[in-house]
């Protein structure tokens, strides 16, 4: 139990995907303009990360490892993620239009989100078992969502600020990310 907890903290805070690992930066800067969309995106990422991690874990240990073709993981994993996202998108689209309007437009973005692919690689590299994989995926997703929410809150506030023209938009977002990164160093060594 302790181990699972420390994996969660590790993935969510200490080795935060965005600030420490540089994964998922495109959606991080692209979708953090509004808090509502940031939270929607975060939820979508958590769901996809969870599903992708489980499926990729199964495929890796049931298919790739027995046959000794672990180097095929890149192709297999991305295929799985792409299909998962597709399935999720169709499902939401057909069942709940409001949810689709809130979440759906971010789903295609997730396909090319390296955070999702990254978490599957990390799970495999760290040789996590299934429970650990699930916790690590959730931790990564929660960490991503947390930082995305903080970032969007700050950017909404910056919308009202008198930011110099040269820094407006993305550059100042980079600076925020830097300062956030420094602040998140505080979690170092906690596990």
């Amino acid at each position: 139990m302790d181990n699972l907890f420390s994996i969660f903290i590790m993935m969510a805070l200490v080795n935060n995907f965005v600030l420490a690992k540089f994964l998922g930066l495109c959606p991080f800067f692209g979708v953090s303009k509004k808090l509502s969309s940031a939270v929607s995106m975060g939820i979508a990422v958590i769901v996809v990360m969870f599903a992708a991690s489980v499926v990729s874990w199964l495929l890796f240990y049931q298919l790739l490892v027995p046959f000794g073709i672990t180097y095929m993981r890149t192709a297999i994993f991305i295929l799985v993620i792409a299909s998962l996202v597709q399935i999720l998108e169709i499902t939401i689209r057909r069942t709940n239009v409001n949810l689709y309007n809130a979440l759906g437009i971010y789903l295609p973005l997730i396909t090319t989100n390296c955070a999702v692919l990254g978490v599957t690689f990390i799970n495999v590299d760290q040789a996590f078992n299934l429970a650990e994989t699930i916790v690590s995926a959730l931790g990564a997703g929660v960490g991503f969502t947390l930082v995305l929410a903080i970032m969007s809150g700050i950017r909404e506030k910056l919308d009202l600020a008198d930011v110099p023209k040269a820094f407006k938009g993305i550059p100042v977002a980079f600076l925020v990310a830097m300062l956030l990164g420094i602040a998140f160093l505080a979690f170092g060594g906690m596990v």
């Binding site: 540089f22 820094f167 980079f174 600076l175 830097m178 300062l179 990164g181």
Partner: peptide, 8 residues
């Protein structure tokens, strides 16, 4: 963090 600072 340095990467963000430099690119920004």
């Amino acid at each position: 963090m340095g990467a963000f600072l430099v690119l920004g």
